[in-house]
Every structure is written in C-alpha cells, then in structure tokens.
Design a protein around this nucleic acid. Sequence first.
RNA 1: UGGGGUGUAGCCAAGCGGUAAGGCACACGAUUUUGAUUCGUGCAUGCGUUGGUUCAAAUCCAGCCACCCCAG
Length: 370
Amino acid sequence: MDAKNTTVVVGMSGGVDSSVVAYLLKKQGYNTIGLFMNNWEEKDDSGCCTSADDYADVRRVASKIGIPYYSINFAKEYQDKVFSEFLAEYKAGRTPNPDVLCNREIKFGPFLNFAKSIGADKIATGHYCRVEEKEGLFYLKKAKDQNKDQTYFLNQLNQSQLSMVMFPIGEETKPTIRKIAIEQDFSTATKKDSTGICFIGERKFKEFLKNYIPASTGNIVDKRTNEILWHHDGVMYYTLGQRKGLGIGGRNVGTGESWFVVDKDVKNNILYVTQGEGSELYSSACVVNSLNWIPRIPTEKTFDCFAKFRYRQLEQAVSVHINDDGSANVIFKEKQRAVTPGQYAVFYSTGHDDYNGYCLGGGVIDKVIF
RNA sequence: UGGGGUGUAGCCAAGCGGUAAGGCACACGAUUUUGAUUCGUGCAUGCGUUGGUUCAAAUCCAGCCACCCCAG
C-alpha cells in the first residue's frame, strides 16, 4: 500500500492510544485525518461534559502532529442502534455489552461510512488488536500486548468492515504507546485510560440505569433454602456473579462468606443468591446466538477452540457445535464462573499463552447450562 | 409476677481483669473501553445503663433498663 496516496481517517477519542495512532500514521506518510465522535450528549455524574475536554485534547494533539481534524455527532445513531438495545436487554433481565454493539453499529457503521464519504481509503482506531489479510480473507488477530487485547469487543465485525481498518498499535504494548506519547509531549500522554461504557463514560451504574429503568422492589432469596434474606430495588440492576450492592450483612447461620447473585427471576422479580463460591455459580455449557464468524463460518460443525465469556477473562478451552439454525452450543472443558446471558462468548484459535492466535468471532450468550 | 438467659460497630461474632480479633455489609481507591469479579485501604476512645471494687474492668460486684425463653 502506497502511504502517500492513501487517506486514513483516525477515530480520535482524546485518549493516548488514538493520539499515538494518528502520530504513527502521519509519520509513516499516510494522508491522515483525525475524526472525533460525540455520541452522548449528557453530562457525567459530576455534571461535567467530558467530551468537550476530550475534543480539546484531540485538537491539541492533531495540531501538534499537523493533521486536519473534525468532530461529528452520531448521538441519534448511538441511541437507535446501541442504547435502545442496551435498555431492552436490561429490561429483559440480561446483561448486555453495549461496547461490542458500538463497534459494529457506530465505529464500523456511520463512522466508517462518513470516513469514506470524505475520501478515506482506510479508517484506523486505537484498539489493541491486529488484522491480517490472507488469500483475500481478513483475520482478526489478538494484540501483541495480551494484557490489553481488545478483540473481544470486535468479535462482531464482518469482512467488509475488517477490510477497511488499520490497527496500528496492535503490534505494540501499552507501555510503548505511553512512552511515544510522552516523547511527543502529547497532552494525552499521562491521561488515565478511559473506562465505562464507550462514549458514556464511568457512571455510578445503578443510579445511571435508574434513569431509564424504574426501580421495582422485590425479594432476595437464598437459592438453596428458598429463604427470603433481604430486598432489592430491581433485579435488572444486578448481574450474575455480582457481590457488591446486595446489602446482605452477617447472619447467625451460614459460613459468614459473601453472597453472590446466581439467578434472576424477572417475571416474579426475585433475585436469587447463594453464600460463598458455590456450585450454583459455575456452569458447564451455554447456547450462543447472533453469531458472527471471522473470517467465515467454520467448515466443521463441531470443533475445539478457546473462548472468553467476558472481557479480561483468560481464554478457556471449549468445544463448539454449530446448530442448523445458526446458533451454537458451547461446552466448557472446565466449569465457568458466572457466565451471563446477554454477554458475548468470543472464540479464539489459541489459549491465553499464545498471543499469535485469531479471534474466530463470537455471539450473544442466550442460555446457560449448569 | 416468679425462675432462667442475653445485651460488644449496620449485621453476625471473639474476648472471661491488663488497655476492643475476625467475618459480612458499607465507603473510597487500584484494576477495567460492558456489567461483574478480584485486590488495597478505611470503618467502636468504646463493649445496654448507673454506680462500686481494683494500679488497671467489656471482663468482678450491685441497682436499673431492654429483649428472649420457661412457668402462670
């Protein structure tokens, strides 16, 4: 690819990673354009509009590098394609992952289209992962920095989306990126990594959800004894495996260990818990739908691979069977803790000890089998 | 009313004369582009209350209060 004749639009968030991406591309000679997105127009918990600060950082960094930059607003698309689904899932008692959708529906949707419309040959983002082209197919490869690997969030990307993207920092490690940013004296160099839902940011989660999903008091019940232990303010505010926020204190029976959410009965508004790391927390298989396969549907209906059931979990050995309806049964070699409907099961060709593996795609966990 | 028992942080709970363990909950922080998990730190100048004994009392003694159980 001839860098000089290639226009790359970089999604700049105002963080270190995308700052360095823009810098590296420019340095390599690409015709580089920075594009900032503002997809959430509400103020944060402390009443600050963080996106304004982020855009200020984008301006500073882009100016320093010497590239043009723009800002665009996809708040409506975010609302329609990501946030509404997010709420619908929570209302159904599941635990969605909005950031996976955000990638598929926004960054690799309207953002990509807009980039094309202003002449982009490629887009680039600050994700820690790699894309590899072999025989006309695009593979999503794990990041070299295993600790930061973000392929989990990109499991829903299709071939046409992957064909358009560059991940310039996938071959680097986070410390290296920080070092480059410091050397270049970017205002983002020592900025804390952003967390929380992409574009929405860190929130007191339950309070945030309460703005959209009304509270509904119900009982917290011991799954083993059926005893009512305490009360909750809405089953949808809790997720499986959760410990914090239950408010169940000491009791004169039991082991004195913490209590964890193990089941939710949305219809009857009951939150089931057990004390300690009990077997109720560990499942042996799950059914996954909304599957996307990278680079294409596996030729074998049944195969062994590795999987993560949530971000930052180490890859686990599993056996996958693709059903005729397109869903898949995933059988765990070892029991897994708190596998939760609504989250994504993401497949990998290698375990956690080999970062030269590929993300094979993934789908939404629909049912969990104990 | 008589007899017995118990009163230690929001909840459990050690301590049994020597200057308040621990767990759960909670708060904050670290980690984290979901939600969680995990990790770290904090959390009773005071042990129902009032007196007494003692160099020293949550611990011993007495009165009072509250709650529980058994009798009536």
